[in-house]
Write a protein that binds this DNA or RNA. Structure first.
Length: 376
RNA sequence: GGGCAGUUACCAGAGUGGCCAAAUGGGACUGACUGUAACUCAGUUGUCUUUCGACUUCGGUGGUUCGAAUCCAUCACUGCCCA
């Protein structure tokens, strides 16, 4: 994997760059649709490429390990072959499940033991096994196994948690170097900064992670219960330390405004379930704010879903029709909303990139933040 | 014509003397959702009120009772069965 820093905004820390993987290039800043189980929910590959213009998607180690299982993925020749997506894939390590399935797991020095959310069976993830599984999945970018610390954690817990993540990182890196890709193309390995909402810890973690000289670096443990302002503050602190010449990935974030604020502070990569999950729950993101498609006010609004939208569905269907689909619980509604939201997120990061290159990013960003906060 | 059953909120439907403005489900309306245990979850759904509370309701009318959706009488309507 290579990263080329192409432009740096003179008035902010925003950057435009290019990541090159064996499965193609990624122009940053970039939003990466989440496809936990090897599928971006309710969206076809064709739509992902042609309509949404996704450049890279995510998969999840924990979920793919449970289903279909490593053996099947290896038989298939990796996730790319299995799901037919020939562009880059990034896999989360299962670290987020340490957080989201916290009532179903046990943390030890060795690793984390989970109860499967499917059948209750017991499974253990270690920094090493997370690498092995991601080798089998064949992700272009693999993530270190970490503990995603809750945003509300006390300092002492956050410190211990961060230190555990660092120790796990060393083991993960070691194992990464001791193993080989299984399918003939290269894989990168990103470490993750933790430290909760404590600048002191974030600084320590960012320094530690930077010292590993990885091909890219991630910021984790944000947008997990702390106020947005804290998150922005932490991003600033961390990005002041992470190397300039490596991509920075803010994990699990966020709202369109979160993205712009983070881009302004020097983040290059994002993923979030929000466009897909909220889309399935009837919420649309547009450049003029959000819409709840189940609201009565759309009942007889026969105008296009989003006249400014860039995807096919935006003009092909009316708001009234999309509302009808949601009210009637028709599957097409989930698909239309997911496509629209993802296309909007990709449009947003693409526009951010364009304005960074044009040199007017801060002005454009300020205007967008105002619009995006509205409610239609 | 005779017999039986029934009529409760937007719909279905529980409730058979006070704890009932009335269970439950559906529908409707509103909100939430941030490295996906999520086509999920939460709230509201007689009127007025921010709350407390007040007021009007259980087919109609009249009664019994301290008190009625619940008991009695009667009328109306609906369904099923027999002629």
């Amino acid at each position: 994997m290579k990263f080329e820093l192409q432009h740096t905004d003179p008035k902010s820390n925003a950057r435009a760059g290019k990541i090159t993987t064996d499965h193609g290039e990624i122009l940053t800043p970039i939003f990466m649709p989440v496809g936990t189980l090897g599928s971006v929910k309710a969206v076809h590959q064709h739509e992902l490429k042609e309509d949404i213009k996704a450049q890279i998607i995510l998969g999840n180690t924990y979920h793919l390990y449970l289903r279909p299982g490593i053996e099947i993925l290896e038989q298939a020749g990796g996730l790319h072959k299995f799901n037919g997506w020939d562009k880059p894939i990034l896999t989360d390590s299962g670290g987020f499940q340490v957080y989201s399935l916290s009532h179903n797991r046990k943390l030890k020095e060795e690793g984390a033991t989970f109860r499967s959310h499917i059948d209750g069976s017991k499974h253990t993830f270690t920094p090493e096994s997370a690498v092995d599984i991601q080798r089998s999945i064949g992700a272009d970018i693999m993530m270190a196994f970490d503990e995603c610390t809750p945003g509300t954690a006390e300092f002492d817990y956050a410190k211990k948690s961060m230190e555990l993540t660092h120790r796990w990182l060393d083991r993960g890196i070691k194992h990464f170097h001791e193993t080989e890709p299984k399918y003939g193309y290269s894989q990168a390995f990103f470490p993750i900064v933790q430290g909760c909402v404590y600048p002191e810890l974030r600084i320590k973690s960012a320094e530690y992670i930077s010292s590993k000289n990885a091909e890219g670096n991630a910021i984790g443990g944000l947008a997990v219960g702390e106020p947005a302002e804290k998150m922005y503050e932490m991003i600033e602190v961390v990005n002041g330390i992470l190397p300039q010449d490596k991509p920075r990935y803010l994990m699990g974030v966020g709202t369109p405004i979160n993205l712009l604020e983070a881009i302004e502070r020097g983040v290059d990569m994002f993923d979030c379930v929000m466009p897909t999950r909220n889309g399935r729950n009837g919420m649309l993101f547009t450049r003029n704010g959000t819409m709840n498609m189940r609201n009565k006010k759309w009942e007889n609004d026969f105008s296009p879903i989003d006249p400014d939208g860039t995807s096919y569905v935006d003009k092909a269907y009316s708001r009234a029709y999309l509302r009808h689909l949601f009210i009637a619980e028709e599957l097409l509604g989930l698909q239309i909303a997911s496509i629209h939201n993802l296309a909007f997120y990709l449009w947003l990061t693409g526009e951010a990139r364009r304005h960074i290159i044009n040199g007017d990013f801060p002005t454009w960003k300020a205007m967008m933040v105002k619009q995006l906060g509205q409610r239609l």
